[in-house]
Design a protein around this nucleic acid. Structure first.
Lengths: 205, 205
DNA sequence: TTGTCAAGAATGAATGTTCGTTTTAACTTG
DNA sequence: CAAGTTAAAACGAACATTCATTCTTGACAA
C-alpha cells in the first residue's frame, strides 16, 4: 500500500472545492470550464477527476455545502431563547451567513447563493433538498411567530406561516442586494425592519 | 427591392426574443445553446444572426427588457398618491411584476429574474444599468418613506434609505421564493408584512 | 535506521463532442 | 430580376472527460 493519509485526501478535496467555489462565484457554473477550475486549483485533470466523477458532482457538492450553511444559520437563529424580535433575529441570521466558512466568508458568499439559486431552477436533484429545507425552516420560524403571539406581541389571528415567509423573504432579498450591489449593511436591514415594526398603522387602510 | 415590412421585422425580432426567453428561463443563459434557441424559435441560424449579432447581444436585449419591467413596476407603485402603506405598496409592485408582459406574464418571470441576477454578476455591462436603476428606485422609495414620516406614521429619526432598501429586499425575496418554490402568494407577503407592522414593540429590546 | 518496491496519486496530451458563428447557395418577393 | 431573406452545411475553437504514463508514498525487510 502506498495509500496517502485520509487528511491528505480530505485536504485535496477541500482544495478542489475551494478553488471551484472561487471560479463558480466569479463566473457561474456553466460559464466556468473545467479547465478554469483546474487552473484555479492548480491540479491536473486526472487529479480532480479522481475526487469528483465530473463537473455535475462538483457542482452538487458545492450547492450542498451552500444549502447547509444557509440552513444552519436559519436554524441557529431559531434556537435562541427567548426568541429575539424579528429585526434582531434577521440580523443574527445574516451575520451568521455572511461570516460563515463556505465561500470565503464575506462578500463572496451571497454571489455564490445567487448562482446556486439559478442552478437549482434547472436541476431537479438540487431543487428537492432546497424545497425540503425551506419547508422545514418555515415550520421552525412559524413557531417563533407563535411565541410572539403567546407573548402578546402579535394578534392571535395572524397567519404564522405568512409571517415566517415574509421574514425569510427579507433575508433572501438582503442576500440578493448584497450580491448585486455589495453595499448592503445588516444594520440597515435591522433599522429598516425596526422602523416598519414601529410604524403607526391606521385602523382602516 | 424585396424588402419586407417593418412590422414583419419587428415580429421576427420579438419571435426570437420570446423563444430565447423560454429557453433561458428553462435552462439559464449558458446552459442553453444557440441551437436550442434556433430550435425553439423555429428559425435557422442565418435568420437569427441577422437580427442579433450573437448570443451576447440576445442576452443583453432580454436582460434589458427584464430590467425595464421591474423598474417600471417599482416606479409605477411609487407614483401612487396618496402613498399606500408598505404592505399595499409591495403587493402592488409584485402584482405588476407577475402580470407584466415579459416572460409570459406568470410563474416564468421570477425564474428569468433569477437568471438575470446571476448573469449580472459576471457581466459588468449589465451590472452598471442595474446598479443605476436600483439607486434611482431607492431615491423614489425613500421619498415615500419621507411621506410616511410627514404623515406622522413613522418617527422622524428613521433612516429613509434603510426603510426603502428593506422594502425592496422584501420584493426581491418574494421574487426569489416565487421562482424557487412557486407557491408564494402576494397576499401572504401582504399579510405577513402587515402583521410585522402591527407588532407591539417593547420599548427596550 | 535505511533501502526497496508495489500500489496509489497525479499528470497532461489526446479524444470525440458540442459550442457559437460564418459561409454558401437557394429561395421569395416587390 | 435583383435585393432581401432564409436554410443548411461547415468551421475552428473550446468543451468535459479519458487514459497511458510518470511520480510519490509508506509499509516492510534487512
Amino acid at each position: 500500500m502506498a495509500r496517502v493519509s485520509q487528511e491528505h485526501l480530505d485536504a485535496r478535496r477541500r482544495q478542489i472545492i475551494d478553488g471551484a467555489i472561487r471560479c463558480f462565484t466569479r463566473n457561474g457554473f456553466h460559464a466556468t470550464s473545467m479547465q478554469d477550475v483546474l487552473r484555479e486549483v492548480g491540479l491536473s485533470a486526472g487529479a480532480v477527476y479522481r475526487y469528483f466523477s465530473g463537473k455535475e458532482e462538483l457542482i452538487g457538492a458545492i450547492v450542498g455545502e451552500a444549502f447547509g450553511t444557509i440552513r444552519g444559520a436559519f436554524e441557529d437563529a431559531a434556537k435562541q431563547d427567548p426568541p429575539p424580535l424579528p429585526d434582531k433575529l434577521l440580523a443574527h441570521v445574516l451575520d451568521t451567513v455572511l461570516n460563515g466558512r463556505v465561500g470565503g466568508g464575506s462578500i463572496e458568499f451571497p454571489r455564490l447563493v445567487l448562482q446556486v439559486w439559478a442552478e437549482t431552477l434547472r436541476n431537479e436533484g438540487l431543487a428537492t433538498p432546497l424545497r425540503e429545507g425551506f419547508a422545514d425552516m418555515r415550520v421552525a420560524w412559524g413557531k417563533l411567530v407563535d411565541a410572539y403571539r403567546e407573548a402578546g406581541l402579535m394578534p392571535d389571528d395572524v397567519d404564522a406561516d405568512a409571517v415566517a415567509r415574509t421574514m425569510m423573504a427579507l433575508a433572501q432579498g438582503f442576500i440578493a442586494q448584497q450580491a448585486l450591489f455589495g453595499d448592503a449593511k445588516v444594520e440597515q436591514l435591522e433599522a429598516g425592519l425596526r422602523a416598519l415594526m414601529r410604524m403607526e398603522v391606521p385602523k382602516v387602510s
